[in-house]
Amino acid sequence: MTTLTATDARKSLFDLLRGANERHEIYHIRHRQGDAVLMSEAEYESLIETLGLLSSPGFGESFKQAQTEAQTGDTRSFDEVFGEPQ
């Protein structure tokens, strides 16, 4: 994460927006009245979605179980899950 002053951020706003959107950079902008973070909307939406999932009851346990199953090869193919019934 790049840290810069509000004055510098103002001078290079369009470059910062390009960096956030094209290179997924995140900027910490310092100001005497409080700091802020600049990130792309896509990064922000992804962060909010992740927080929502992690706060869902039982998600952590389900995720750990899925990781264990994947690591041990206890999986099903795409066709087994979504294919035509036989």
Rank of each mutant, 00 (worst) to 15 (best):
M1I: 05
M1E: 08
M1N: 10
M1T: 14
T2L: 14
T2C: 08
L4F: 02
L4G: 03
A6S: 05
T7E: 10
D8C: 00
D8R: 08
K11W: 06
S12A: 08
L13Q: 08
F14C: 09
D15Q: 05
D15Y: 04
D15R: 04
L16S: 06
L17M: 04
L17I: 04
R18T: 11
R18E: 14
G19P: 06
G19H: 07
G19S: 06
A20L: 01
A20F: 00
A20Y: 00
N21M: 04
N21Y: 09
E22Y: 00
E22M: 02
R23I: 04
H24S: 15
H24G: 13
H24M: 13
Y27E: 03
Y27Q: 00
H28G: 04
H28W: 13
H28Q: 14
H28P: 10
R30L: 00
Q33I: 14
Q33S: 13
Q33V: 15
G34S: 05
G34Q: 06
A36S: 09
A36D: 11
V37A: 07
L38E: 08
L38T: 01
M39P: 11
E41M: 10
E41D: 05
E41T: 10
E43D: 13
E43P: 09
E43H: 10
Y44L: 12
E45A: 14
E45C: 11
E45G: 07
S46A: 13
L47S: 13
I48T: 03
E49S: 12
E49P: 00
T50V: 14
L51M: 07
G52L: 07
L54M: 12
L54W: 08
S55L: 03
S56I: 14
S56R: 15
P57R: 08
P57I: 04
G58T: 01
F59I: 09
F59S: 10
G60N: 06
G60C: 01
S62K: 12
F63M: 03
K64Y: 08
Q65R: 15
Q65F: 01
Q65D: 14
Q65P: 00
Q65I: 10
A66E: 14
A66F: 04
A66G: 07
A66T: 10
T68P: 00
T68S: 13
E69N: 14
E69I: 02
A70G: 11
Q71I: 01
T72H: 05
T72M: 02
G73Y: 09
G73W: 01
D74W: 10
T75N: 08
T75S: 02
T75P: 09
T75D: 06
R76T: 15
R76Q: 13
R76W: 05
S77N: 03
S77I: 03
S77L: 04
F78I: 15
F78H: 12
F78P: 15
F78A: 12
F78D: 15
D79Q: 10
E80H: 11
E80R: 08
E80W: 05
F82A: 10
G83V: 08
G83I: 10
G83F: 01
E84H: 12
E84M: 12
P85V: 15
P85H: 12
P85L: 15
